[in-house]
Design a protein around this nucleic acid. Structure first.
Length: 487
RNA sequence: GGCGACAUGGCCGAGUGGCUAGGCAGAGGUCUGCAAAACCUCGUACGGCGGUUCGAAUCCGCCUGUCGCCUCCA
């Protein structure tokens, strides 16, 4: 474990509604499961917030020395558009619209999901199990629930009997009586009670994605895939389960019910939920006409956007607020984040490029401690970023004054682990030999320009600077010479 | 209607019973052929009304507003 002193990681647990000391069930191992996407559409800002948030959770746990196994499912089994008895499943519907096989839809959007997450520098899960590849495990769990009297078969449809589980509702704090009053009760339902939920549904003739089972040819209920797959890869009890706040009920509540009734063991120790994203103060939704997917954000290819916003800006913006707060996206806010990120990058690069000097040693422990204190408080990345600005400013100043700290090399290592490994915000760099060539060329132009300047040939010197600027190379003059940055 | 969360300076956004969060934007200045960058200085905010307290933006109550969940959703 990293040296944390008395300062230990605390995690807000939705189960207790409190921040709790984090203690893994089987240290140094940590099992972490986060609900993955249903792959029937391009990922949007909401996915970005959720997966960037848990990416930092994962990265910080690893920074602390935990051996984390990170599992994130891919929901590629079509579930109903609504929860009514009839209705079309989401993948089939999209397949019909795009006139392809449902599995082509799943493949296509699995691809775009990982493509966009990669751009956001979100680490891939260690295991990304597909629901369609785990039908036997799901059937086995349903069987077990029937055997134990927690589920019943109603003519090929299998439902979980909520009344058989006294603890149902403990995550969301919801009483089943509450739900009844507000929800339209489906009169034609073959459920014993309206709050019972499907474990297995019989497929009608038009349903394409279906499998054989002891009860009917059909398909599994939405909730059971997560219980079955998390159990398979992380065991009956594991440490962290994450997801969006909107999944708290009914999805996660149902997962708990299934898993705990099937295994008679506590399912998850810490439940974590990220808050939602709004756009200009409004919920995003297709019906509201403001649903912008991530690729459109990156490229700016949308009527509501004046330009594209680089993935790293979106990541930085998200990390500047807490994962349990709602995040409101606006171009004004993104623009501020972009400038802030640029500033952070320039500090980090100034330090990374500098050589140790004779200046006073930088207080490494102070930075490490302040960073960890922030992150230990339920992954407060916003505070952690403030710490960086606060403390690195001084170092840059000293470097500029020729007073680089003597322990700069150690600082660089710490900075890499904080900014690169944990926050995933390290500046992008041109790669390998190209970079050397490029730097050499720019330095050559700077030499020529310096000569022009000393000859008072400002026409030439300004042309060099302006033309390089158009190519994304910014020159900055100072007493000690000219430095440059490359976008 | 039921349940829950949140309301912080121009914008974003941490925090918290008494001491400057931070970023962006803005103003002035240093430097500079000019520009940019960097550096220095500047803002005394916490929805409203009550209450607890020596003291609250921070705790309690009420009100208002926003958002979420209650149906698939990260």
């Amino acid at each position: 474990m990293a040296d944390q002193g008395k300062n230990k990681l605390h995690v807000y647990n939705t189960l207790s509604r409190e921040k709790e000391l984090f203690e893994s069930l089987n240290a140094p191992h940590v099992g972490m499961y986060v609900c993955g996407p249903t792959v029937y559409g391009d990922p949007h800002l909401g996915h970005a917030k959720s997966y960037v948030s848990f990416d930092v959770v994962l990265r910080y746990l690893r920074y602390l020395g935990y051996k984390v196994r990170y599992v994130q499912n891919i929901t590629d089994v079509g579930h109903l558009v609504g929860d009514a008895e009839e209705g079309e499943d989401k993948l089939s519907k999209q397949a019909r619209i795009e006139q392809v096989e449902p599995m082509e839809i799943a493949e296509k959007y699995t691809y775009s999901y990982f493509r966009d997450m990669d751009k956001l520098n979100v680490l891939r899960p260690d295991i990304a199990p597909r629901a369609s590849g785990h039908i036997p495990e799901q059937i086995a769990m349903v069987k077990k629930l029937i055997e134990k009297g927690h589920a019943y078969n109603a003519d090929g449809n299998v439902y979980f009997d909520v009344s058989s589980d006294e603890e149902y509702g403990k995550l969301s704090g919801r009483k089943t009586e509450d739900a009844e009053s507000g929800t339209r009760v489906d009169v034609a339902s073959d459920k014993k009670n309206p709050e019972d939920f499907a474990l297995w549904k019989k497929a009608d003739d038009g349903h394409i994605m279906k499998w054989d089972s002891p009860w009917s040819i059909g398909y599994p209920g939405w909730h059971v895939e997560c219980s079955a797959m998390s159990t398979k890869y992380l065991g009956e009890s594991f440490d962290i389960h994450g997801g969006g706040l909107d999944n708290q009920f009914p999805h996660h509540e149902c997962e708990i019910a299934q898993a705990e009734c099937a295994h008679d063991a506590p399912f998850v120790k810490y439940w974590m939920h990220n808050n939602m994203v709004t756009l200009e103060g409004q919920k995003m939704g297709k019906s509201l006409g403001n649903a912008i997917n991530l690729d459109q954000f990156f490229t700016g290819n949308h009527d509501l956007l004046s330009r594209g916003w680089p993935p790293e800006v979106i990541r930085f913006f998200l990390l500047q607020s807490h994962y349990r707060s709602t995040t409101d996206f606006s171009e004004e806010a993104l623009s501020a984040a972009e400038a802030g990120l640029k500033n952070l990058h320039s500090m980090v690069m100034a330090i990374d490029k500098a050589e140790p000097g004779s200046g006073t040693a930088f207080d490494l422990d102070g930075l490490k401690h302040a960073f960890e204190t922030a992150m230990n408080d339920d992954f407060n990345s916003a505070q952690a970023i403030a710490v960086l600005f606060d403390q690195l400013k001084e170092v840059r100043k000293n470097i500029n004054n020729g007073q680089a700290p003597e322990n700069l090399d150690t600082l660089k290592i710490l900075l890499h682990s904080i900014v690169e490994e944990v926050l995933g915000l390290w500046p992008k760099q041109a790669s390998g030999s190209n970079e050397e060539t490029l730097n050499g060329l720019v330095e050559l132009l700077i030499e020529i320009r310096t000569q022009a300047r000393s000859d008072k040939n400002f026409e030439l010197s300004d042309k060099i600077r302006d033309d390089l600027d158009k190519l994304g190379v910014k020159l900055m003059d100072s007493k000690d010479g000219t430095t440059f940055t490359i976008d």
